[in-house]
Design a protein around this nucleic acid. Structure first.
Length: 568
RNA sequence: CGGGGCGUAGCGCAGCCUGGUAGCGCACUUGCUUCGGGAGCAAGGUGUCGGAGGUUCAAAUCCUCUCGCCCCGACCA
């Protein structure tokens, strides 16, 4: 492709509405344009990257035994009513009516549609397992679309659904998808981790997220330095490796005045005690019953774990009024000592045996100091209730956990029979008994993967594409368009590379060398060949990988072969 | 959903407070010079000042409503 013809309008200035680097670079390098909040045009270069990611996905999904289908984006309400989600899903589901007044939605995910399809025609155990996937545009009317392609409203997703006779068979389908995902992201040239994730409200038993490692990632994950364990911080279990000794208190607790100091930071500053000596007391609403939950001051509460411990349907932090009802004080002054307004007091394991701790006094502008667990208050139930942090012990091997930031680009999920039960998707087993199919679902955010690749691979000059998903692999720069030898050599190389099947861009624009270098870097093309009058006199051209800073001088006669080798 | 901010040329912005008939940089067109890391000079085109209504002799500017976009927050203790 000639750059003079390519529709890739590059910008010198950073667009003002772009916050994250992938968004900035995609706009600046002429890959995307915004049409509306969270809705983007994909220009030719972006389309090529998306297609490359899709091709890798297709090859690996097909190799894993899945079959590609294409389901409608516009979905009639009936199937969503059948599963019950028409009423459960919030405003993220974009609903609308057709001309006859019938209800429809734009599919944010396709469990209903796929189950509807499978249950019609699959009746026998002989037809299972079955794994169907599609690559398609999804729409989720996000509360707050942001970060460009990272959290758009319209995006391209690969979604797959497996149907099996039982849990064991589903686990095999799951394992096959897990392995396929590892190959897909490895082939895309990305650094990633598969992490254990929360199974959430769907109630499945297994779930892994595929996280592309990037410091700008929205998700916090921990991974063991010694073994292969990795998990989302929300999911990471924290086992108690040794029982702390019972608390031995020296001092009695006393009440101190802490005017208007509500947060841990404010109080630790004011009292000059470290955060780890603080007992944070959170009031939570679990199915309309109020509980106090205690975690150490330097730890963070994990509501998901609280929900599991209580076996509750719903757990939220309490509202301001509820906090006042429970503690008799404003938010920020709750503490376990003398707390009456709650059904029970739960505490994270790290709170066990704490002495000389600081806690809220359940009175405005007051805290207690030198509080001791067991003596000054009784915990109803201890458990693992906090987010994991760097340095926590690995639940598998006891090694040290390291923390990372990640971008979730894929998710594999053991679904079970939630949808097949609700929508009566059943088969007849060998003995003629009707059973629900057991399902798994497997998603990859295709357009998000493109953005994540940039978040992980960029520098001050622009994008640095991994070879496998670059829109073109080579860019040829004739540095002086007014020197016939330079233009000729560039044209010949361009033609030779095309003939050899190498995806190549030729910057044939009548621009100065500086402009061409800047644009080549911005676009992120993995290999650059610069042809200039100076080098040509000595019969050489320059070869420079985008990722490295060293320039190789290559004889003109060898350049086509060298490039072809490099890009293989 | 709550709070804040911004809509002026393709892009980035100034002008608004203190009303007087719209400007800067980049980009774009033409010419000359330049030619290995976003060139210089000259000439040129570009706007319903987001939309509607109001106040006024006069509105980008003041007022009201509305639409769009961005950021922060959604109880982080």
């Amino acid at each position: 492709m000639r750059l003079s013809r390519l529709h890739a309008p590059t910008l010198k200035e950073v667009p003002k509405d772009a916050e994250v680097v992938s968004h900035q670079l995609l706009v600046r390098a002429g890959y995307i344009r915004k049409l509306a909040a969270g809705i983007y045009d994909f220009l030719p270069l972006a389309k090529r990257v998306v297609r490359k990611i899709e091709t890798i996905i297709r090859e690996e999904m097909d190799a894993a035994g899945a079959q590609e289908v294409f389901l409608p984006a516009v979905v009639p309400a009936e199937v969503w009513q059948e599963s019950g989600r028409w009423f459960q899903y919030g405003p993220e589901l974009l609903r609308f009516k057709d001309r006859k007044g019938g209800d429809f939605c734009l599919g944010p995910t396709h469990e209903e549609v796929i189950v509807d399809l499978v249950k019609r025609d699959v009746r026998s155990w002989r037809s299972l397992p079955l794994n169907l996937y599609q690559i398609q545009t999804k729409f989720r009317d996000e509360v707050r679309p942001r970060f460009g392609l990272m959290r758009g409203r319209e995006f391209v997703m690969k979604d797959a659904y497996s149907f099996d006779v039982d849990d064991a068979a589903t686990n095999r389908s799951y394992d096959a998808m897990y392995a396929a995902y590892e190959r897909i992201f490895a082939r895309c040239g990305l650094q990633f981790r598969a992490v254990e994730a929360d199974t959430g409200s769907i109630g499945g038993s297994r779930s892994h997220e595929f996280q592309v490692l990037a410091s700008s990632g929205e998700d916090a994950i921990v991974s063991c330095a010694q073994c292969s364990y990795a998990a989302n911080v929300e999911q990471a279990e924290l086992h108690l490796h040794h029982e702390p000794p019972p608390a031995v208190a020296e001092k009695a607790y006393e009440r101190v005045h802490t005017p208007n100091r509500r947060t841990i930071a404010e109080v630790t500053d004011y009292l000059r005690r470290p955060a780890r000596q603080f007992i944070k007391t959170l009031i939570v609403d679990a199915d309309d019953r109020l509980f106090a939950v205690l975690v150490r001051g330097d730890h963070e509460l994990n509501l998901i774990k609280v929900k599991k411990l209580l076996g509750a349907q719903r757990v939220d932090l309490a509202h301001e009024e509820q906090v006042r009802t429970a503690t008799g004080a404003a938010v920020g002054f709750a503490g376990p000592v003398g707390l009456r307004g709650v059904v029970g007091i739960l505490a994270d394991n790290a709170v066990r045996g704490m002495t000389h701790a600081v806690a809220g006094a359940n009175a405005d502008d007051h805290h207690f100091v030198d509080v001791t667990e067991g003596r000054d208050f009784q915990v109803t139930r201890f458990g693992d209730l906090r987010l994991a942090v760097e340095g926590d012990p690995c639940p598998r091997c006891g090694g040290e956990l390291k923390s990372f930031r990640g971008i979730e680009v894929g998710h594999v999920f053991f679904l079970g029979t939630k949808y097949s039960d609700a929508m009566k998707c059943t088969y007849l087993d060998e003995s003629g008994v009707e059973r629900p199919m057991v399902m798994g679902c497997y998603g990859i955010g295709v357009t998000r993967t493109m953005a994540a690749a940039i978040e992980q691979n960029h520098d001050a000059d622009g994008i640095v594409w991994p070879l496998a998903i670059a829109p073109y692999r080579v860019i040829v720069l004739p540095l002086q368009m007014n020197v016939p030898d330079v233009v000729q050599a560039a044209e010949k190389l361009y033609a030779d590379l095309q003939a050899a099947g190498v995806e190549v861009l030729l910057d044939d624009r009548d621009e100065r060398a500086g402009v061409k270098f800047k644009d080549a870097d911005l676009l992120g093309i993995p290999l650059r060949v610069a042809i200039g009058g100076r080098g040509l006199k000595d019969g050489v051209v320059e070869l420079k990988p985008r990722r490295s800073s060293e320039v190789q001088q290559v004889p003109l006669a060898d350049i086509a072969r060298r490039v072809a080798e490099w890009t293989e």
